[in-house]
Design a protein around this nucleic acid. Structure first.
Lengths: 243, 243
DNA sequence: TTTCTCCTCCCCAAAAATGGTGAGGTCGCA
DNA sequence: TGCGACCTCACCATTTTTGGGGAGGAGAAA
């Protein structure tokens, strides 16, 4: 690992490199540069799509990448599972590795060259979008604790910019803005999402149930939804209602 | 506004102050310190609960705060609405202020002392948790553009630490880890959220509709939901399913 | 002024969802 | 080995939701 004195400089440089990345290959190179600048084993950006699709970019070996996809480790990997429930960047040591599947996964990961130490920054967007920026290394606990403490802030910023760039370069992942709902439609969807029946919603809004139905139907139409549950789900995932 | 030379120093100091905050009052003071350090008009942290409850902390006047709550501006405020749809920190100028309600809101906000410029950092957590860290100021566009460009990274880090601290101090807001759903329950909820009817879901999962009902009911029970739509909404807002 | 969207109300019949109860199997953990 | 969690299937009657009609008034935009 590079000395602390050297390690302090790269941030500006890295962020600028990232800004200039003009394609997914450039992003791949950026992850390698980050790895080299900091003198750590691995730098990885991992995107998990709302549909469960994933996109990865980083310095893990192809073998591991393939193995990961093939075994569908997405649902096993304690880093994913744990970070998905957390707010803040986390050291891998603080995750839950107790289950049998997690231990097996860990052993295999290390065999494939992933470091025994790791630090992951969760990143979230609207519509449940989720990504992880991870660094991994092989060293003892104290060394790692010092290093992460020193570079925590750098990593947050890099994670941020990395994610921003990845999104720019793959605009498919920022879905279309959908047609807005009228105020009454929003009311209706919101109350339905809160578990009210149509009768209750109509009562709450002081309108007839027939009128309410018109709103639900028009919301369903605007959202391209097949039924009420679908409409509510879409309204939520598009941020049109907050529950 | 403070000179650039002075403005560069405060970051470390601010972050340390934040680390040491030991109560919500301290957090309030921290926001005032940040404001003074950077010489801007306002610094605000705004939390929006999954239930629509809010918690605010910052330098806006009490009058504006009350007005905001009383008028339920949460659903009007283009900063909230816009940031809720975005990934990245955003300058208020880039938000959509075109609707009549938004313009009225803007005029009123300025009358209550909110600056004409603003920059907000959206922060997200698991289970649909959402917060904004905002700074606001009164100045012309160029000055503001320069300032935000210079301090963008600082703001991201401060936003991050501020949010972390706010969560530490108010653990109520990291809600009960909702009971996880079983794989089949997740399947069922996911397909329902995609608009499938019960019959279609049962067919897709190759199980009888009766069996499917058991999943839906047990998911509903685990989620404390009143009906299927409610269960899907809760599963979504808790991040248990992604659609 | 015309045109548009939004809000409000009504009927009927068919389809879907719900509530309650019961039962048998597998699998992992303690 | 036993407990608990999960997956699978079934029947009943009742309540709720849905689909397809039609219609008038208010207010904003063009």
């Amino acid at each position: 690992m590079v000395s602390a004195a050297m390690a302090k400089q790269p941030l500006e440089f890295i962020l600028e490199e990232l800004e200039q990345a003009d394609g997914l290959e450039a992003l791949q190179r950026a992850s390698e540069q980050i790895r080299d600048h900091y003198g750590i084993d691995h730098v990885v950006y991992h995107w998990v799509d709302s549909a469960g699709d994933q996109y990865g970019c980083g310095t893990y070996s192809d073998a591991w990448r393939e193995r990961y996809l093939e075994q569908n480790y997405l649902r096993v990997d304690p880093v994913i599972v744990g970070c998905f429930q957390r707010f803040h960047p986390v050291d891998w040591k603080r995750l839950d590795w107790s289950s049998k599947a997690a231990r097996a996964f860990q052993a295999e990961a290390i065999a494939y060259g992933v470091g025994n130490q790791g630090f992951s920054v969760p990143i979230r967007g609207p519509n449940g979008q989720f990504a992880l920026f991870t660094i991994s290394h092989s060293c003892n606990d104290d060394t790692w604790a010092n290093w992460t403490e020193t570079h925590r802030r750098d990593l947050i910023l890099i994670a941020h910019d990395f994610n921003q760039k990845a999104l720019e370069l793959e605009p498919d992942r920022t879905p279309e803005q959908s047609q807005a709902l009228s105020p009454r439609e929003v009311d209706a969807m919101t109350l339905l999402a809160m578990g009210y029946s149509r009768a209750q919603v109509a009562d709450t809004l002081s309108i007839s149930e027939h009128t309410l139905r018109v709103y639900i139907e028009s919301a369903r139409f605007k959202l391209g939804a097949l039924n009420t549950t679908h409409a509510v789900a879409r309204a939520m995932s598009r941020g049109l209602i907050v529950v």
